[in-house]
C-alpha cells in the first residue's frame, strides 16, 4: 500500500507540536493520552488540587493570629508532602501496574510485540509516562509548597532534598510496579502481584515519610550532606530500577530460542565427540534414536 503524500504546512503550530511529539517514545504519548482521559486521574488530580487549596485557605484562616509568632511552614509542608506521597507512591505505581498488566488482557501485548518497539522501549515508555505524570502531580502542589516556604521555618535545601528523594523513591517504586505488571500474565498473578505491590508501596511510603519528615525536616541538612544523601539514595534506587527493568524486559521478550534449537532438523545430530565414537556405535545410536521416535509417536 503506497502512502499518498498530502500537502504539508511546515509552519503551523499543529505540525510543530506533532514534530515535537515525534521525539518521544510512542508509549509515552499513548500513556499520557490515556491517563488524562481516565476517570481515576481526573478524580485524584482534582482531589489533590481541591484538597490542597481548601487546606491552605482554611489553615491560613485558622492560624492567622499565630502567623506573626510561629513558623507554620513545616506544618503545612508536611500535609502537602503526605498528599504528594499518596499520589506518587500509590496512584502512579498502581496506574503503571494496571497499564502493564492490561497489555496481557485479550492478547493486546501481541499487537505491541509485533511492532518494531523493543521490550526495553516498551518498559522505558511505561516508566517515562509515569514520570511525566509525577511532574504533573508535583506541579499541582508546587504553589502550595511555595506558600509553606513563605510561612517560614523551612529551608530551600530541605524542600529540594525531600522532593528529590520522594521523586527517586517514586520512580523506583513505579519501575517495580511495571515489573510486577509484566509478571501478571494470568489473572491470578495479577491479583497476587497487586497485593505485593500495595504492601511494598505502603512500606515504602511509611519509610519515606519517616526519613523525609523526621530526619530531613527535624534534623535539618546542609547542602553537602543533602547532595551526598541523595547521591547514595539515587545509586540504590537505580540499582532497584535496573533489576526491575531487566526482569520486565526479559518477561516481554518473545524471541528467546529454545534450548537445543536446530535450524535444519533433517541433519542427524552427533551427540558425542566424533573421535570417541566408533562408526558402528553411531549406527546403533541412530537406531536407538529411531526407536525413541517410534516410542514417542506411540505414546502420543
Amino acid at each position: 500500500m503506497s502512502h499518498v503524500s498530502t500537502t504539508q504546512f511546515p509552519g503551523t503550530w499543529e505540525n510543530r507540536i506533532r514534530s515535537f511529539s515525534d521525539r518521544f517514545n510512542p508509549l509515552v504519548v499513548r500513556e499520557i493520552r490515556q491517563i488524562v482521559k481516565a476517570r481515576s486521574f481526573i478524580t485524584v488530580f482534582s482531589l489533590l488540587l481541591i484538597g490542597s487549596w481548601a487546606f491552605s485557605v482554611l489553615g491560613v484562616i485558622n492560624q492567622f493570629e499565630q502567623m506573626e509568632y510561629t513558623e507554620l511552614g513545616p506544618f503545612f509542608y508536611r500535609v502537602y508532602l503526605v498528599a504528594l506521597i499518596g499520589c506518587l507512591m500509590f496512584a502512579i505505581p498502581s496506574n503503571a501496574f494496571f497499564s502493564m498488566a492490561q497489555e496481557f488482557h485479550d492478547r493486546a501485548f501481541e499487537m505491541l510485540a509485533v511492532t518494531t518497539l523493543s521490550p526495553a522501549k516498551i518498559v522505558a515508555g511505561k516508566l517515562q509516562g509515569a514520570v511525566v505524570m509525577m511532574f504533573v502531580y508535583a506541579s499541582a502542589v508546587v504553589p502550595f509548597i511555595c506558600l509553606s516556604y513563605m510561612l517560614g521555618g523551612l529551608g530551600l535545601i530541605e524542600i529540594i532534598t525531600s522532593l528529590c528523594g520522594l521523586m527517586l523513591v517514586a520512580i523506583a517504586l513505579t519501575m517495580f510496579a511495571v515489573m510486577m505488571g509484566a509478571l501478571s500474565q494470568k489473572p491470578w498473578m495479577e491479583v497476587m502481584n497487586l497485593i505485593i505491590l500495595l504492601i511494598v508501596a505502603m512500606t515504602t511510603a511509611g519509610a519515606s515519610y519517616s526519613v523525609l519528615i523526621e530526619v530531613v525536616m527535624r534534623s535539618g541538612v546542609e547542602l553537602g550532606g543533602a547532595i551526598m544523601g541523595i547521591g547514595c539514595f539515587a545509586v540504590f534506587m537505580v540499582f532497584v530500577a535496573l533489576i526491575s527493568l531487566g526482569v520486565a524486559q526479559a518477561q516481554l521478550t518473545t524471541t528467546f530460542l529454545p534450548i537445543g534449537y536446530r535450524r535444519n532438523p533433517n541433519v542427524t545430530r552427533n551427540f558425542q565427540h566424533p573421535n570417541s565414537v566408533p562408526p558402528q556405535s553411531t549406527d546403533q545410536q541412530t537406531t536407538s534414536s529411531q526407536q525413541e521416535i517410534n516410542q514417542e509417536d506411540l505414546e502420543l
Binding site: 510512542p26 504519548v29 482521559k37 497489555e103 492478547r107 501481541e110 499487537m111 518494531t116
Partner: peptide, 23 residues
C-alpha cells in the same frame, strides 16, 4: 490475531497513530 485487546480511553485515530509511531 483472532482476538485483540482494545486500549481504554482511546479513539480510532489515536489508536492508529500509536501503532504508526510504534513502527
Amino acid at each position: 490475531p483472532d482476538a485483540f485487546g482494545k486500549y481504554p480511553n482511546m479513539n480510532v485515530v489515536e489508536y492508529l497513530d500509536f501503532f504508526a509511531r510504534a513502527y
